[in-house]
Design a protein around this nucleic acid. Structure first.
Length: 638
RNA sequence: GCCGCUGUGGCUUAGCUCGGUAAAGCAGCUGAUUCGUAAUCAGCAGAUCAUGGGUUCGAAUCCCAUCAGCGGCUCCA
């Protein structure tokens, strides 16, 4: 259905002549007028024939929403065929229009212009910003495998892309209302209104963000300036917005985070794969799915074919799973891809720094489980893994937890869910749905809440009960029977860029509280900065650097005063700074400034190396990816 | 997508109200200084003032459009 909504001072019409498809009308309908009305020009389309009632319902919702916004109490329904080239059968259209009139008349004074007549009409549009709106209403199947997103609650409702398309998701949302609760470690499920947040201010901020959608922001997020100044990342005006450039230091940090996530899941049996970034828009399995995301994709035309860029790795992995021969012995079967990139055409207003991007790197793992019990056991395991991952990354407990599930799932698995809360050992936001209207029955996310009270999902796991069927994925059990697996979607860390965002925001918070902002040592582009006092000390410094394999050491040999070079090291957040002069050359003992402690120790190169190695133990290491001598480094920013 | 604010050397900014062809600090380069824990001194170079139109004798400055960043709305689980 196509809708054109005009908030009018008045609308009046007069029927002139009937067309072959004209409905029979009483003389009272031959002319009509209405003042201060929301006029809805409507074209019922062939797509709507599949579900006329659903169309009526969605159209009513859309009209109510707009009428509420413009504070209109009167609605004029005006059939207007010219809005579409794919019109429905006349009988369906009349039926839809009549039902829409009936539905709306409970709350509004409604008039309907007759269908199928040539009519003269006059309308006066009020002309304020909301006075003219067009809407396309589409009923779609609740298809698809919205990704094991990093992003917030991703995927599923992306299909509803409000002003573009009103899909099944939105329709279902009316039926399946969200019930918000707090679940405590003791297993108490309290409505959010009755929970005492006084000891849980971050959770309160998260709940406010989720429920009241409070979005007041008064400045540019702090991480934006930091990502530039630390030469991590920057906007790239030569690309589309939300596609960033990463400087060497940022690239190193990304690679380390990626290495870490891949290593972690590999230890738990995942295998790494790589799948295409673009898919055929007309592929039979993918097409329906794509229909759910009409306004969200980058599309590419190439040699008369249409492609879309993936927003997660589900497509490629599920298509791969479908073609595999899988035995019950192979379960749980875990595949991970570090998607560089996942693409989503997020709206402009949503793109800020590294928090939300149009192209982002996401570890996307899918686990095939034999059945629901198996999936629940795996879910718990991956939940614990995600906690460990965020702790290792440097965001230990800097997040609030949301667990979202259907009422049915809760009824059968109450104990399991309470156990999840006990594991994080703090109250958790619960969103409860009356019925399942997404492809999963339960999901959790760990959300970072920043200084501007914005919540961003990092880790997430979902239990998918639909896509094995949709993609035709099966495994053979002991008896030789073919069965559908239950699938887990998991992003252990969430988007890699978003982890960097969270680390920078966290560091900013530290510095606002009077502390020293730092990055975790294993992620610091330089571990140890050597500052030779004079040229004659450079050679010795090079020896010190060579004596510290496995540590990222660089040498500030620029012709500047010692004071200035120390200040520069501080601005780069380098964890260990060593000044090397005659004294050190003579004694072989280094004077090491430790940033995190704002203190100094005297150590040999060997001792310093061991200190750093023990600090980064167990985490990935990569060589320094810039010239060791600072005099040879170009300036990327500033 | 809609509305608003902003856009000046690589970076940060002044100038814009009341048009007369651009100023400073940092970074870079050259020279001097070889220095002990948060910015050494001097000099040089570097800008068709986001882009494209328009008004004007003359536009960074006024008008329009476009793009980008930011904020709000919408959206986003």
């Amino acid at each position: 259905m196509q809708l054109l909504l005009i908030h009018s001072d008045y609308i009046e019409y007069e029927t002139k002549k009937r067309t072959p498809v004209a409905e029979e009308i009483k003389s009272s309908m031959k002319r009509g007028c209405m003042e201060d009305a929301l006029t809805a020009f409507i074209a019922v389309e062939s797509y709507d024939e599949a579900d006329p009632d659903g169309t009526v319902k969605n159209a009513a919702t859309e009209i109510r929403k707009t009428a509420g916004q413009v504070k209109a109490n009167r609605v004029m329904l005006y059939p207007y065929a010219h809005l579409s080239s794919e019109l429905s059968k006349p009988a369906v259209a009349v039926d839809v229009l009549k039902k829409l009139e009936e539905t709306l008349s409970s709350d509004y004074e409604v008039k309907r212009a007759p269908f199928g007549w040539y009519k003269a009409f006059k309308i006066s549009c009020k002309g304020h910003p909301l006075s003219e709106l067009s809407r396309t209403i589409r009923i779609g199947k609740n298809e698809g495998s919205a990704g094991s997103e990093e992003n917030k609650k991703n995927g599923e409702k992306d299909g509803s892309v409000g002003s573009e398309v009103v899909s099944e998701a939105l329709k279902s949302e009316e039926k399946a209302v969200s019930h918000w609760h707090i679940l405590t470690q003791d297993g108490e499920l309290l409505p959010t209104e009755t929970f005492d947040f006084s000891e849980h201010t971050d959770l309160k901020r998260f709940v406010d963000y989720e429920i009241s959608k409070s979005r007041a922001v008064d400045r540019i997020p702090p991480h934006v300036e930091l990502m530039k100044r630390l030469e991590i990342a920057d906007y790239e005006p030569g690309s589309d917005s939300g596609n960033m450039r990463f400087y060497p230091k940022g690239t190193l940090m990304k690679r380390l985070l990626e290495d870490y996530v891949i290593d972690t899941v590999s230890k738990r049996g995942a295998v790494e794969v790589e799948t295409p970034v673009m898919y055929d828009m007309n592929h039979p399995t993918l097409k329906k799915y794509l229909d759910r995301f009409p306004a969200r994709q980058y599309s590419i035309e190439s040699d008369k074919r249409s492609f879309f860029l993936r927003f997660a790795a589900c497509f490629g992995q599920f298509l791969m799973n479908r073609d595999m021969t899988i035995s019950y012995r192979n379960l749980p079967l875990k595949m991970i891809e570090m998607t560089r990139y996942s693409f989503r055409r997020e709206q402009h207003g949503e793109l800020v720094g590294l928090r939300r991007l149009r192209a982002f790197t996401m570890p996307d793992m899918h686990t095939l489980c034999s059945d629901m019990d198996h999936a629940i056991a795996e879910f718990k395991d991956q939940y614990a893994m995600c906690m460990a991952v965020l702790a290792d990354i440097g965001l230990d407990r800097d997040y609030e937890v949301a667990i979202r599930f259907t009422r049915d799932f809760y009824a059968e698995n109450q104990e399991f869910i309470t156990e999840l809360v006990k594991i994080v050992d703090k109250p958790v936001l619960i969103e409860l749905w009356d019925s399942r209207f997404f492809y999963f029955v339960i999901k959790f996310e760990f959300n970072y809440i920043d200084t501007m009270n914005k919540a961003s999902a990092l880790s997430t796991v979902q239990i998918d009960v639909e896509n094995a069927e949709r993609y035709g994925i099966e495994y053979t059990d002991k008896n030789g029977d073919k069965l559908r697996p239950t699938i887990l979607h998991c992003s252990p860390s969430g988007a890699i860029e978003r982890c960097i965002y969270a680390l920078l925001e966290k560091a900013h918070l530290t510095s606002e509280a009077g502390g020293v902002p730092t990055l975790p040592t294993w992620l610091s582009p330089t571990h140890v900065r050597l500052i030779p006092v004079a040229d004659r000390h450079i050679e010795y410094a090079e020896g010190v650097a060579r004596a510290m394999p496995g540590v990222r050491v660089d040498i500030d040999n620029r012709e500047e005063t010692v004071g200035k070079r120390i200040r520069a090291a501080g601005r780069e957040w380098i964890p260990y700074v060593v000044v090397i002069g005659d004294k050190e050359v003579e004694s072989g003992v280094l004077s090491v400034t430790i940033r995190a402690e704002s203190g100094k120790v005297e150590e040999t190169a060997q001792e310093l190396r061991e200190r750093v190695l023990s600090e980064i133990a167990g985490m990935p290491y990569r060589q320094i990816n810039l010239p060791v001598m600072l005099s040879q480094r170009a300036v990327f920013f500033g």
